[in-house]
Write a protein that binds this DNA or RNA. Structure first.
Lengths: 208, 208, 208, 208
DNA sequence: GAGTAACCGAGACGGTACGTCTAGTCTTAAT
DNA sequence: ATTAAGACTAGACGTACCGTCTCGGTTACTC
């Protein structure tokens, strides 16, 4: 039985007419295009106009679903990367931190996604909507994951009880972000190891 | 015979005609305007067009002296704030670090200049020229200052010799930047103190 | 049990749901809206989108019944004005012409309907459908009415037999339209009287 | 000596760069394009967007010089047609009127310019700026010319002294416009002749 | 009276044009 | 001669409307 005769006739991406298309199809086209533009050219070249042209979706539709360029970028980015930086728990907090920070650093410095993430953070400085979306969809979740692992280390007696583990997140991952966003110094493996060692062992003499 | 009625009427800040103006005068007008726009509206509203209009300087001149929006913003920003975050050296590295970080945090969170600095870092993510200028004119200098103070602490026996002090900059100031640029958590005084304490004393038990 | 809260609350002009509505009701709603828009804002602000919104009728339905904006405007206009410019026949062709032209001029210059009629003629210059509809529903009928009255005058010996009365329509009402559509000169009462006098008596000396 | 090396290299209408072009050159390009669009497609298809595309002139420039579509159309039309409908004066007013009306009718019905003029009048019904421009640049001048010829006829004793010659313009040319704008009846040569005859000789019996 | 087909509302969709803004280049007029 | 003024192209912005089409519901017929 001839189901969907029109699409069969239309050929690949042929004239679908002007009427309504299923929302899911449109959404998929858009996110694919956004992801491609972000990874190959960066957020500066991401415009509603270009996305509309490349994805054959009208500007009206884009503006209806994504209120700002930031929203579009966020959605397209996370649709494209789906990165799953697992948080290991072998029981050894020192090893686990180094392992996770290494993986994070590698993603940020060796994949196009890393640059895009930096650009998203950059745009968020002048786009409150993007800033909120970034925290909601990404950073707060990752911060929570790290916090949980550190709290388990606290319970296991590897980190002192009075320590506020939230601060550690800033002194480990935050330090990496610092070198990524203001690249005066490179992100090396020695740097990663030093981050963990400095914090766990302290940099003073213990009796200062 | 009234041959030049316009100039007669123009008077103060009137039509200066099209001829050459002293470079210093032009430069001062521009930087003042840039500073005002940055502090009152942010970097997103800073455009060559607006600066030309507000400062009565032609776009030609702007493009001649400042190759990009980032360059213009950097120049205008440092002309406006002239911030001099002195680096104290009382001999007590713990007290000095807390004192300096507190001052830094206060400037960043309580003055309009703080927001502009964050926006500059943001724009630098998609503007290599701005990124380079920022490091050259600001961050590398400040990083060096911090490094020197820490190295003196090392020589004074307050920080262990094998520590790479450059990493400490990222774990202290970098951690603050992290909370400023990705504001999941606030920059409080407890946070500042914890940063220093965690690093100097370590978060483990010393024998782990 | 409140099974149909919506309809109960909805009351007058409330959400009627999506089902079928009687065609007459829909048609009446549309024509009322079109008339209002035409008389208060003019044909330039008459759009399918607006009519659909204001009359709570879907665009689908509008396009089904009225193929073009012109058709919609024509229908709505004649539904709104229902003007009946009677054509008097007192036996005195001079008086009857002046009387009818006066009434026509008054309607055209002193009522909002006059402006709308001019705008309809204007739009018809670039809309063949509207042009045809206008002639079919309005102008040809009025032209015929005027022609009949003039023919009766001819039979009564008040207008010479060899005269083509259709031309007179253009020299009387057409002259008024001329001043309405290209308003270099105003439509005054003297103008109306002169129109009739010039034609009936001639402007020459009879022996030229 | 190689003058204009760039244009020579650029080839025909090649990349001129983005900078300023001489205003006259731009203006000529625009008016030529507008004239072509008007004469081949009509005023409905005349858009700023299309003119910008076809003439390689930016929309910014178009909007700067021509505040509305009507202004653009008027300017382009009169630049294209340059029609010079001379007003003959042989001393015989009857012959001169027929001659001029014939020429006018021929232009209006047999050239594309005629349709464009009708469309301009049509658009003017909803565009006050266009309406004013049309009267200023076209209709008032032509009305004045006709009025002068008729006044000379009056002085020559061919038209009675008490006649307001301005009304005659509406009863002659206005009648033609009527048949053009509301085409219930065609504009034939018999029609033209009847217009003049009816007015000069009157349609009554002289003693009515 | 239940089932069904016709129909309507709501509104998403691809296009096109709108009028404005900025970037960056280039010409011209004034000093 | 040099520079300021600003006209120019290119193209993105966000909005409105067009005419088409999908979908979910309701009404009014049919059996």
């Amino acid at each position: 039985m001839a189901t969907e005769p029109r699409d069969a006739v239309a050929g690949e991406r042929g004239q679908r007419g002007r009427g309504r298309r299923p929302a899911d199809e449109v959404r998929a086209d858009v996110l694919r295009t956004v992801g491609e533009v972000l990874l190959t050219e960066g957020i500066a070249d991401l415009t509603f106009e270009r996305v509309a042209r490349l994805s054959s979706v009208s500007k009206t539709t884009l503006y209806k679903w994504w209120p700002s360029k930031g929203a579009l970028a966020m959605d397209g980015y996370f649709h494209a990367v789906q990165e799953r930086l697992a948080f290991p728990d072998t029981g050894d907090i020192r090893a686990d931190l180094i392992s996770q920070l290494r993986a994070f650093a590698r993603v940020m410095t060796e994949t196009p996604g890393g640059r895009v993430l930096a650009e998203l953070i950059g745009q968020a400085q002048t786009d409150p909507d993007l800033s909120a979306a970034f925290r909601r969809l990404y950073s707060s979740g990752r911060r929570a994951l790290a916090g949980e692992r550190l709290r388990r280390a606290q319970e296991a007696g590897q980190v002192r009880a009075e320590i506020d583990v939230r601060v550690l997140v800033d002194q480990l991952w935050g330090a990496v972000y610092h070198r990524l966003l203001i690249p005066d110094e490179p992100v090396t493996d020695d740097f990663i190891i030093a981050l963990v060692t400095n914090l766990l062992d302290g940099i003073g003499f213990g009796d200062v």
